[in-house]
C-alpha cells in the first residue's frame, strides 16, 4: 500500500450540547489520490476538514497528516498543506496581491527576495493576474475563490485540502479550476476535495469517501466502484429478434432497449451482428456515483 498522507482513526467530534457532527471516521488518503469527500450539507464534511487542519479539536480519535499526529505536529505539517476551507478569506481593503504578500510574510523563515515572484506565479496560475491590484472588496465571489486557491498554492504544497473549491464559480471557471487541479495532481500533488456535488467528484476523483450524518459509509477507489456490473445495455430496432436470440440472458427490457447479462460486451455485439440484428448502441452498464452513494447511505 502506498504512503498515506491523511489517516484518521475513529475521528469523532461531539459539539457542546451533545450534537455528534463526526462519528468514528477512518479516512485513508494515499499519496497521489484525488480524494473526493462527498456528503450532503450538514453531514460533517467541514467539521472533518477543520479537524484535519487543527482548527477544531477532536473529541475522540486520532489524525495523522504525512504520518505525524495532528494537531500536535501542526507547525511542521501544515506548511506542507494548502487549504481552502468553507469559502475564501481576505482583507477587503487590500488588493489580491497585497493579501497574498501579507499571508506569505506570516512565514518568517521564507526569504523575502522571491516573494514577489511567488505571489506573481500563483496569481497567474489561478487567472487572477489582470485584477491583482484591485481591492478585494470589488472582487466577485468567483474571483475571491480564485484568490483563496492562490493562497493555498503559495507554498507549492504536496497536499491540498479543498472544501467546496468551485463554489461561486461560473461554468467556465469550474472547468478552469478542474483543469488546474488535475494538472497539479498529474505533477504529483495529492488533493483532498470535499464537495456536495456528485458530478464534480465523479469527474475528478480517483478515490471517494462518502460521509452521511457524520459517518463514513463508503470509502473506495472510483474505478472499483464503477467497475462493469456484468450487465450490458443494448439498443436495437430489431428488438424481437434480439430477444429471441438472447433468451434467458435478458434481465430487463424497455422501449427499444434490453439489459442483458453478459460478461463480454464485444462478444455480445459480434453475436448479435452476425445474426443480422442491427445495433444502435451497446455498452457495459456501470453504476453512476449517484446510485452508489444513495445505496451506501441507505444501507448504513
Amino acid at each position: 500500500m502506498s504512503e498515506l498522507l491523511i489517516a484518521t482513526h475513529g475521528l469523532t467530534k461531539v459539539y457542546r450540547g451533545g450534537v455528534t457532527a463526526v462519528d468514528h471516521v477512518d479516512l485513508e488518503v494515499r499519496a497521489g489520490d484525488v480524494y473526493g469527500f462527498l456528503g450532503a450539507n450538514g453531514s460533517g464534511k467541514t467539521t472533518t476538514v477543520r479537524m484535519l487542519l487543527g482548527l477544531v479539536l477532536a473529541t475522540e480519535g486520532g489524525i495523522e497528516l504525512f504520518g505525524e499526529a495532528m494537531p500536535k505536529a501542526g507547525a511542521s505539517v501544515l506548511p506542507r498543506v494548502g487549504a481552502l476551507v468553507e469559502g475564501p478569506g481576505a482583507y477587503p481593503h487590500l488588493s489580491g496581491r497585497a493579501n497574498l504578500t501579507l499571508l506569505d510574510s506570516t512565514d518568517g523563515r521564507r526569504r523575502r527576495g522571491d516573494r514577489r515572484r511567488r505571489v506573481g506565479e500563483v496569481l497567474e496560475q489561478v487567472g487572477l493576474d489582470p485584477a491583482d491590484r484591485r481591492p478585494v472588496r470589488t472582487y466577485s465571489l468567483g474571483m475571491r475563490q480564485r484568490l483563496g486557491l492562490a493562497s493555498a498554492l503559495l507554498r507549492r504544497p504536496p497536499l491540498l485540502v479543498l472544501d467546496e473549491p468551485t463554489n461561486g464559480l461560473d461554468p467556465q471557471g469550474i472547468r478552469e479550476m478542474r483543469e488546474l487541479l488535475l494538472s497539479l495532481n498529474r505533477a504529483g500533488t495529492t488533493i483532498f476535495l470535499s464537495s456536495h456535488l456528485l458530478a464534480e467528484i465523479e469527474q475528478m476523483s480517483s478515490r471517494v469517501g462518502v460521509l452521511d450524518r457524520g459517518r463514513l459509509v463508503l470509502q473506495e477507489d472510483l474505478a472499483t466502484l464503477q467497475a462493469p456490473t456484468g450487465l450490458v445495455r443494448v439498443r436495437t430496432p430489431d428488438l424481437s429478434t434480439a430477444l429471441r436470440l438472447l433468451d434467458g440472458q435478458v434481465v430487463d427490457r424497455g422501449e427499444g432497449h434490453l439489459v442483458v447479462r453478459s460478461p463480454d460486451a464485444a462478444a455480445l455485439n459480434a453475436h448479435l451482428v452476425a445474426r443480422d440484428v442491427r445495433v444502435t448502441e451497446l455498452g457495459p452498464e456501470r453504476r453512476s456515483l449517484e446510485e452508489i452513494v444513495l445505496a451506501a447511505s441507505e444501507s448504513a
Binding site: R50, L53, G54, L55, G74, A75, L78, P79, V81, A83, V85, E86, G87, P88, G89, A90, Y91, P92, L103, T106, D107, S151
Partner: peptide, 14 residues
C-alpha cells in the same frame, strides 16, 4: 469576520 482567522492559523501561525 473577514474569514481570515482560519487561513492565518493553517499557515500555520501559532
Amino acid at each position: 469576520q473577514s474569514d481570515t482567522l482560519r487561513y492565518l492559523l493553517v499557515r500555520p501561525v501559532s
